[in-house]
Design a protein around this nucleic acid. Structure first.
Lengths: 164, 164
DNA sequence: GCGAGATAGTATCAAACGCAACTATCTACC
DNA sequence: GGTAGATAGTTGCGTTTGATACTATCTCGC
């Protein structure tokens, strides 16, 4: 005598939204992104893409927009718009690239460097608050797994395997 | 004699975008979401919110929209629009709630149940492909950590602590 | 050097998102 | 029992997003 608790076909029984990794990933990411986006927007008037450009330029120095695209993984349209916004606020400066008339080199202005130095501690504080109570070893594993997932998704989507 | 490799203030030196958890999380989530969204959209004409409603209704049975909101964590507008789309395709059915004239009860139609049974194995296959090569123990930890992050983000954003 | 195709970046458009405002209904208190 | 405030759900609207198309420039082969 069998007990049938659900009117489900057997195939579907294995799927539970709460335990479904893409779901968990999306919900967690949205919650964190919303938090971070609000912080940057409210206090500094920066969008997430703008903040990413500032970070990368502060880390790696001046580069052109296509380098920013491959560095950040964002769409070239997103990068273009973010750069325009930052330039309008004089946080970024643009210079002609005499080796290639199509591309320009963008760099943080002095004000941009100052802003980055001001935001960075806040960004780190948010990260610290998010992972407080977690074993550092777990956090390292988490980051590694996220990279793996990103790579696997890229491969399944038909991209060339990521350089990670 | 000190060597200064970067023209950065000390505070900013600790921030590297690649190792920044919110960034890793967002990039991984976007990659996975894009993959999954394309699969559902191309093959079944479902958006992610629509698919989530189908899943929850298949798992938990009929409920009203505000229950769907708290169950999925999505915005009520998102739920409303997703439900409308599903109703238009006769995958969902709606009945009056005689106990409360404001709310309606939505339930999967027979066709909706069939669709869920058809998609569920595909969804599970995608998950399996994403985590292939990972230790099941690591995957379990990953899901737990994602829940923790979601909860921490909610708390930092001023929400009531999540029921997780 | 000149024409075909690749690449850098921008403009345009349609779809998705979420907030706020709105309607309709319910609850609670006097 | 009637009025104030809460709740269910929809609509409208401004913003953001990403795909596509476009301009300008570069590269390669001849």
């Amino acid at each position: 005598m069998t007990v049938q608790t659900r009117p489900e076909p057997a195939d579907a029984a294995g799927l539970q939204l709460d335990a479904y990794l893409p779901y968990r990933l999306s919900v967690a990411s949205n919650a964190v992104s919303r938090l971070i986006a609000r912080a940057y927007e409210d206090r500094f008037g920066l969008t997430i893409p703008q903040w990413r450009l500032v970070c990368v330029l502060a880390e790696d120095g001046p580069m052109n927009q296509s380098a920013l695209v491959s560095r950040t993984g964002m769409d070239k349209v997103t990068v273009s718009r973010a750069a325009q916004g930052l330039i309008k606020r004089h946080l970024l400066e643009r210079s002609e690239n005499d080796r290639d008339g199509r591309s320009h080199v963008v760099a943080l202005s002095l004000e941009g460097v100052r802003l980055h130095a001001e935001i960075a501690p806040l960004a780190l504080a948010y990260e610290a608050a998010l992972i407080s109570g977690l074993d550092p070893h777990e956090v390292a594993l988490l980051k590694r797994l996220l990279l793996r997932l990103q790579g696997a998704a890229g491969v399944l989507a038909g991209e060339a395997p990521s350089p990670g």
